[in-house]
Amino acid sequence: MNFTAIDAWWWPYLFILIAGWFATDIWRYAGVLLGRKLDETSAAFMLVRSIATALVAAVIARLVIFPSGALAETALLLRLGAAIVGFAAFLLAGQKMAVGISVGLAILVTGMLLGF
């Protein structure tokens, strides 16, 4: 039963609903039911927040170190350098996001134009 198994207009939509919508929103709904009972100041909340943050941080690292698409052809050192120097600039500028983002981007684009 794959995406082209049934030759009807509705089958791809049903496929997307089951393998896409349901597989994703099931976690969102579970999150709601859990979050409804959680106090924003409780230790349990802080633990879940910690897990969510570590997850997003892992997403960041993946996007920089193991990217797909146009970035996949650039050098790892260039991407790492752009992210690290950008973040350092952000810290030095008193946590101004615009500074960190522009510095990081400027390094990346310069590197790409130079062929790294």
Partner: peptide
Amino acid sequence: LAAVFVSVALSSVRLMPMVTTLV
């Protein structure tokens, strides 16, 4: 369908703690 469901579900678990804290 079943195999795609499993891999999509795995990629989406991260949404649960995010939704929990935001809610």
